[in-house]
Each structure stands twice: as structure tokens, then as C-alpha cells.
Amino acid sequence: MPARQAFAQRLRARAPMIGTFVKLRDPAVIEMLGGAGFDFVVIDAEHAPFDRENIACAILAARAANVAALVRIPEADGHWISTALDCGAAGIMVPQVRHATMAELLVQRVRYRGGMRGFSPSTAAAGYGARGIAEHLEAQDKETVLICQIEDSSAVAAAADIAAMDGVDGLLVGPVDLAVSQGSTNPAAPEIVAMGVEVMNAARTAGVSGGMFVSDASAISRWSGCGGTLFVLGTDQSFLLQSAKAGLASARQAIT
């Protein structure tokens, strides 16, 4: 089964999964992360310089590594959504979703049937025409997921309505954005944690996946205990930096 289909099934079943953000544009990074065993990667076109060509190459690498690739789009418009999905992304992650009206519009932009997404049967997602019109039309809505990021207090207040929107498959809390939106620089502050718990409860009540970005794996147990099932652990950049620092420190200590 293709990775994007397996990912969609597991996400909708609220199975625990761990991924990471990809900010480096070399496709080999995604091949390595897939080989390391991550359940998914998130190509971060919001905060890293991914254009259409970079996204296509990154998703090609994900397909080669048989790892599901989501794309965090920089703007909530049809241009970015169509690019990512036509390239074969497993789904779309949208930052700063603040209310159900925005979530409803995103569902329409992601979907063919009942939506407004432009159709082509010759894309990478359609096997370059191998699927055929009817098969691709039937399959794509089932294998494509939509994850809405909750990143400020207004979004937290609307989380239950966003999660209940038909076509929304998960909520992902951005604790750093939440903290900044509250005038804080501490994503572990009690009031920020309380907002995260509220979002997890909203997702669980709606029967969709509740997700959290964590910079430290030790935080996963807390959020798993709150009903979280989708975890984005750090970034490729942070893994590289941490490993480089650790290796350099060990090397300096070994100098006699």
C-alpha cells in the first residue's frame, strides 16, 4: 500500500505516529528520515524556501523512501494546495487556522467532489495517467488528509468547531506560536499547556487526531496522556545541529 494511503488510514484511526519537519531542500534528507523509520515528514514551505520544484523533488524522495509527506503550505490558497497534492503529498497542513469558516474553505480546496480543486489525471499523484480519471477521482479524497494548525487563542476557542468540520482530519498545536500570541516566550508555561489540553480534548471529542509539535521527545508522554496521537518531533535542522554539537564536543574531549 502506498505510504499516503496507509498514513490516511492510520491518522483517521487515531493511531500514534511520529514525524518531523523538513526545512532542508536536499531530497536526500527525506530519504534518510524515511530510512530512519519516521511515520511521516512535513515539508515546511511556510518557514523554509520551498518552491513548486522543490516540493515536487521532496515528495518524489518521500515516495522513493515510502514515507508519507505532508506539506505545510505558506498561504491557505488553492495554488499551494494543488501543487502539493498533485505532486503526491499525503496531505496538507495549514498554519493559523482560526475558525470553522476557514476550515470549511480549506476542505473545499483540498477535495475534488463537493470541493473546488482543479482536476488532472496526469499528475504524479495519479501515476502520470496510469490511474485513469475515475480511479483517481475516487481514490484521492480518501487518501488525502487535512490538518489544521491551532496557533492562537481565537483558534483554541474555535477548536471544537474546526475539529467537527467534515473533512478535517486532525488538529496540530503550535505551542511556540501559541506562546508568542499570548505575549510569552515560554511554550511550556501553564496557560499555554492548558490551551494545548483544550485542543486535544476538542480533537478527541470530534474523533479526529490531536497533534502536537515537540522539541523534546520526553514531552510526548504528557500529550499522549491527554489523547494526542500525532507528534511532530523537532526538525531536520535541529537533528543535524544537535548531532554536530555532540560529535564536536566528544571530539574536543578526546584531544590529549
Rank of each mutant, 00 (worst) to 15 (best):
residue 1 M to P: 05
residue 4 R to P: 02
residue 12 R to G: 05
residue 19 G to W: 02
residue 20 T to R: 06
residue 20 T to A: 14
residue 24 L to Q: 13
residue 27 P to A: 12
residue 28 A to T: 15
residue 29 V to D: 13
residue 29 V to A: 12
residue 30 I to D: 15
residue 31 E to N: 14
residue 33 L to Q: 11
residue 35 G to L: 15
residue 36 A to Q: 12
residue 37 G to V: 03
residue 38 F to V: 13
residue 41 V to F: 06
residue 44 D to P: 09
residue 44 D to G: 11
residue 46 E to I: 07
residue 50 F to M: 02
residue 55 I to L: 09
residue 57 C to K: 13
residue 58 A to Q: 04
residue 61 A to W: 01
residue 68 A to L: 05
residue 71 V to M: 07
residue 77 D to S: 09
residue 82 S to V: 08
residue 85 L to Q: 03
residue 92 I to P: 04
residue 94 V to R: 00
residue 94 V to Y: 01
residue 97 V to F: 01
residue 98 R to N: 13
residue 98 R to Q: 15
residue 100 A to P: 00
residue 101 T to H: 15
residue 101 T to C: 13
residue 106 L to N: 03
residue 107 V to F: 05
residue 110 V to L: 14
residue 110 V to D: 07
residue 114 G to P: 01
residue 115 G to H: 00
residue 116 M to C: 08
residue 117 R to F: 02
residue 117 R to V: 04
residue 118 G to Y: 00
residue 121 P to E: 12
residue 127 G to Q: 00
residue 132 G to M: 02
residue 133 I to E: 15
residue 134 A to S: 13
residue 135 E to H: 12
residue 140 Q to F: 11
residue 140 Q to T: 15
residue 140 Q to W: 05
residue 149 Q to M: 15
residue 149 Q to I: 13
residue 150 I to K: 01
residue 150 I to F: 05
residue 150 I to W: 01
residue 152 D to H: 06
residue 163 A to F: 01
residue 166 D to F: 10
residue 170 G to A: 08
residue 175 P to M: 06
residue 175 P to V: 05
residue 176 V to L: 11
residue 180 V to F: 08
residue 180 V to N: 06
residue 181 S to Y: 02
residue 183 G to V: 05
residue 183 G to L: 04
residue 188 A to R: 06
residue 190 P to W: 00
residue 192 I to A: 12
residue 194 A to C: 03
residue 195 M to W: 03
residue 196 G to F: 01
residue 197 V to E: 13
residue 197 V to W: 00
residue 203 A to P: 02
residue 204 R to K: 14
residue 209 S to K: 02
residue 211 G to T: 11
residue 212 M to Q: 14
residue 216 D to W: 10
residue 216 D to Q: 14
residue 220 I to H: 10
residue 222 R to M: 08
residue 222 R to N: 09
residue 225 G to Q: 09
residue 226 C to K: 09
residue 226 C to W: 09
residue 233 L to V: 12
residue 235 T to K: 07
residue 235 T to P: 06
residue 239 F to K: 05
residue 243 S to W: 04
residue 247 G to V: 06
residue 249 A to R: 07
residue 251 A to V: 08
residue 254 A to G: 11
residue 254 A to N: 14
